[in-house]
Design a protein around this nucleic acid. Sequence first.
DNA 1: GTCCCGGAGA
DNA 2: TCTCCGGGAC
Length: 333
Amino acid sequence: MWVRSDLDSRGRADSIKRLRPNSPVMTEASGDDFLPDDADRVRAALIEWYEDDHREYPWRETTDPYPILVSEVMSQQTQLDRVVDAWADFLDRWPTVEDLAAADRADVVGFWTDHSLGYNNRAKYLHEAAREVRGEHGGQFPRDPDGLQELMGVGPYTANAVASFAFDNGDAVVDTNVRRVLYRAFGVPDEDGEFERVAGQLMPDGESRVWNNAIMELGGVACTKTPACDGAACPWRKWCDAYETGDFTAPDVPTQPEFEGSRRQFRGRVISVLGDADELPLDDLGPRVRVDYVPDGDGEGGREWLRALVSDLEADGLVELDTRDGDAVVRLQ
DNA sequence: GTCCCGGAGA
DNA sequence: TCTCCGGGAC
């Protein structure tokens, strides 16, 4: 059974908010929060899932902060595929932070341009950061997020990432992937510093390296904009609000496109989904067609909305809607 | 994601 | 003055 099937995530968010302001009985450790009661199982499940299998990137094989910083800066603007080559070339040319600090700015910017790494301001920042490490830190990177964040071009995100991956000494990383995961799984509201607060509470103490890798991997391969819960064997399915309700809305998932275009788009998606799943119940098809599918919803994105869409496709001779045994099953015609 | 700038409020 | 926040640029 669902541990929290009686709770509505938004209603819960509201009640939490009323309790929170400076309530003396509310402490970080009070446990009254968005997380399930068995949060330790949630943590263990994710780490196990990550360690069992994950994408491999060369910068995950080092704990040297310099190459890690380079990878983070590059990743902020470029698809990971392109970063892999550029990263290797960059380190080939400037193997250490001292080498980079000694380089001419124009060469670093030139490298950025030659490798199509986007806004060359980043190259400037990276070069400047290297000089700060040399000049203000004796050639050694700061080992904590606050120290790292003082480096040019290093904000809260990158500071935590480097502190985590290099020194296993970071706080919970909060990027759009993590926000999406927390919003969907536990109904964490998109307001104030709620993501940061809950993310920090969820992260196991002193395990920032594996944890931040794992939760970002989750958002990167399973809890994607169009979710792949089953395909990626998401370890949080039994705790996940969105998996339970079928509502995969998220802060970074664009809301409905123009009505006319959307209908055409959804028709196409139905066909595409059915293409690699021979037949699907209506409610399984729904979430794959639109992330904000809610079976019980009565308007756009509800079961009846989907049934109507499928009926049109059936009339066009594209799909088959089989309602013989109680629930409707859709397949390609 | 980070920086910078301009406006609002203390 | 100084800090916080939104908005835009890179």
